[in-house]
Design a protein around this nucleic acid. Structure first.
Ligand code: FES
Ligand code: FES
Lengths: 144, 144
DNA sequence: AAAATATAAGACTTTTTTATCCGATTTAAA
DNA sequence: TTTAAATCGGATAAAAAAGTCTTATATTTT
């Protein structure tokens, strides 16, 4: 579904947002520990998130990663997925045809398109704030 | 979503079924041409389908691949996906946690689980016969 | 000003997936 | 009975994804 990089990106964003809401700036090491991911690889992915202005970075001693309250509230999951995996989840034919369109559909298109719409809708309507909330209220976890 | 191998498997099964319904046994070369896939790799995948008794193979001159009408009618897409990609699509946590369960869910589980149920349902209810039918009646295609 | 801390960037390595190749085996046709 | 056609199985190769390492750069602290 998502690439490993994208999975880490989502978890890292949630972790960073959680820390930010508690007033703490975090860093690569904490994030990698917090989401159980390889540190160096996670650093790579954090750079993508910074480049797409989903999270903020601060270089130097005492630096790290941060996320604005407004971003936490307004950023939806789809933005992370698009940043890391591109728009394949929205546009790609599940059977690998070059074009996915109702005009020249593959045999599964008709059945799949509505499901994909629901998936994309849920990615769009779910904000980072929602996910952070779930982290405490419904006992959701980021590792194991 | 699916691995490339699984995409080829689905298309190859549909192609084989279509030929079978027209009374023709087909072979690796025809299949690879018919679905625009690499021939040798396709041969590998056909062996998986044979091993799982989704299609039939016949060795030797004039041999090739075949699919029984009963199988075409009763085999659903999920069986191909399970044979080639395993049960990840059903069981795997979308964020990569070791276990996907309502007991210890990741933050996206609650939103994702219903969508996945719809996806799996559509994979279960869609038969090869349905897909072959779509191939002609609704102008669906297997390549490009 | 120097030292320490942390991200940024790019080269490199490993693992997995995708794809190819070749020889063995089976079967039908010549 | 020989030959040709086809799948089967294993080894190998190439490409992509995942992951590591090293150096540069920026920032704070001492
Ligand atoms: S054409 Fe295959 S999913 Fe749309
Ligand atoms: S625990 Fe992550 S999808 Fe179920």
């Amino acid at each position: 579904m998502f690439s490993k990089a994208c999975e880490y990106a989502i978890k890292a964003t949630i972790f960073t947002a959680k820390q930010a809401l508690e007033g703490k700036r975090t860093n690569v090491k904490e994030i990698a520990e917090g989401i159980d991911s390889p540190e160096a690889f996670t650093a790579k992915i954090l750079q993508i998130l910074v480049k797409h202005q989903i999270i903020l970075s601060q270089k130097g001693a005492g630096g790290g990663f941060d996320m604005q309250a407004e971003k936490i509230q307004n950023t939806s999951l789809i933005e992370i997925v698009l940043a890391v995996d591109g728009d394949a989840i929205i546009n790609r034919c599940v059977l690998g045809l070059k074009q996915c369109s109702g005009a020249n559909p593959c045999p599964f298109h008709e059945k799949y398109a509505p499901v994909r719409m629901k998936l994309v809708a849920s990615l769009k309507e779910t904000t980072i704030a929602d996910l952070v909330a779930g982290l405490t209220t419904r006992m959701a976890i980021l590792k194991e």
